[in-house]
Each structure stands twice: as C-alpha cells, then as structure tokens.
C-alpha cells in the first residue's frame, strides 16, 4: 500500500512539475562572507510591533567565522536581537546588516533556531524528511527535491542521527529533535547560525554532539548564540552582553585565527 502511494505520488509529481515552471522562493544571494558577518549601528527593536523597546542604540560587529555568545538576563532582548537578524522581527530604528544585506526572509545562508520551535504536534514526518527540508532553500516553488540525499545523509551522520533517520519526528527526544534541526540548517548550507539557547533542556550526549559540531570542527561558521551558561563563555571568540536594553561587547577578538580552543 505504501509503495503504491509513493509510486502514484511520484508519477503525479512528474506530470505536474513538467507543466509548471520552477520559481525560486527568494532572490539569490552573493556567495561568501563579506568579512563582517553582522554589523549594527544604533539599532533598536521591540519583540512586538506594539510592545516596548527590547534594546536600543546597539552598535556592534561580528566578523565572519566568529563564535559569539549573547548573554544577559531573561527579557534583556537576546531573542529579539536574534529574530531581528533572522528577518522575523522588524527593526524600530538604526541600521543592521547581516551577510552584507539588511535582514530579510528567504536567505539560505542564514539559519535561525528558536528556543522553543513551534512544530505541529504528532505530525506524520520522518526525521530524514525534516532534515531534507533544508534543501528547499536551494529550490523553490514547483520543484521536487529528489537530489541532495547525500548531503542529508552526511548531516545526519555528523549529528549522530543516522540510526534515527526513518523515525517519525514525534517519537524523538528533545535533544534528538534539536540535533535534527541543526542538521537541517547544515543541509540548508547556512554560514551564519543564529541559535537561541540551543542547550536549554538537552541531555549531556546531545549537548556534546552539538558542541563538537559547533566548536571543534574546522567549519567556517559564524555562530551567534544566546546562552545562560557562564561556564560556556571561554569557548566563544566574542561575548556580547545585553543588560537594561543596552548591548556591550565584553570580550572580543578578531575571529577565525585567534579562536579559543
């Protein structure tokens, strides 16, 4: 029965997509990081359009390849800043550029992971399909993503998920799901990772796998991570502290070459 369904679906798809033209979701981006991954001048923003300002007059820079920690108490605007950079929340005033452009939706080079992703409950979806969604960034409307399986397999294995690939998403633990979402960002080919407290509620094994991925390997990622864990900070190249609506760079280095081990 399941084979009949997938055969039918494939044939129907071939017919449908031979009629319709493929249209990309968003305009293409320039390749490579332009030196400065994120820069902000006098930036202010609010979590909600009608809400109070979360932070104001923020001026900072994050070089390409720099692992940056975003620290500060609850409600200090860390999540709002990450959502602004992701293009999900509009700014109130000032100027901000990420990857050489003002933030907008539809950018494959930027991945954002919410603190608590709102995923539909008990949705019939296998982990492999979730990770495959990352490839959509390079396709668009009226196109099937049949290729890219290799990239999906590689990302699954790098995050220790190979054995879980055919498991429905709703049977995964929080840590496994979080790793799946990071694998999706990898498949997407993101160069700038915006992570909102990715370690919250993770068990040690999941945490170590994600850590190894973000810090130990020689990837040219730029990471901006909101975190509450003071023990973590030594591993970051740069620490931005948000307090009372103001952002201060507490600890900075030039990025790539001087990265702390």
């Amino acid at each position: 029965m399941n084979r009949i369904i997938s055969t039918l679906s494939r044939h129907l798809g071939e017919t449908v997509f031979s009629i319709l033209p493929a249209i990309p979701y968003a305009r293409k981006e320039k390749d490579g990081c332009p030196g400065v991954a994120v820069s902000a001048k006098q930036l202010s923003a609010a979590a909600r359009a009608d809400g109070p300002i979360a932070f104001h007059d923020a001026t900072f820079e994050i070089p390409c390849g720099c692992r940056t920690a975003l620290i500060g108490p609850n409600g200090s605007g860390k999540s709002t800043l990450l959502r602004v950079l992701a293009g999900l929340t509009p700014i109130r005033s000032g100027e901000v550029r990420i990857g050489g452009e003002p933030p907008r939706l539809g950018r494959s080079r930027i991945a954002y992971l919410a603190q608590r992703p709102h995923l539909a409950e008990s949705f019939p979806l296998k982990l492999r399909r979730l990770v495959q969604m990352g490839t959509y960034a390079h396709h668009g409307w009226f196109e099937e993503c049949q290729h890219g399986d290799e990239a999906v397999d590689r990302a699954l294995s790098r995050l220790g998920l190979t054995d879980l690939a055919d498991r429905p998403v709703y049977t995964l633990s929080g840590g496994q799901l979080q790793r799946g979402l990071i694998a999706r960002a990898v498949v997407q080919g993101a160069e700038i990772l915006l992570l909102d407290e990715p370690y919250a509620a993770l068990d040690q094994p999941s945490r170590e796998i994600i850590d190894r991925f973000l810090f130990d390997q020689g990837h040219a990622f730029t990471v901006v991570m909101a975190t509450h864990d003071p023990a973590d900070l030594g591993r970051f190249d740069r620490v931005l502290e948000m307090r009372d609506g103001v952002i201060a760079t507490r600890h900075a280095c030039s990025g790539h070459d001087h990265r702390h081990a």
């Binding site: 319709l20 992701a86 539809g106 992703p117 995923l119 409307w141 009226f142």
Partner: peptide, 20 residues
C-alpha cells in the same frame, strides 16, 4: 504542485517563513 510547501508550512510555519 504545492506538496512540499504545504507540508512545510503545516509542520514548521516559522521555517517556512525563513525560507521565503
């Protein structure tokens, strides 16, 4: 024709917005 977009938007609306 819109299978992958409908599936994505139903499962993870925010990621759908992020991809455009």
């Amino acid at each position: 024709a819109l299978h992958k977009e409908l599936e994505l938007a139903s499962f993870d609306e925010e990621y759908a917005s992020l991809l455009g």
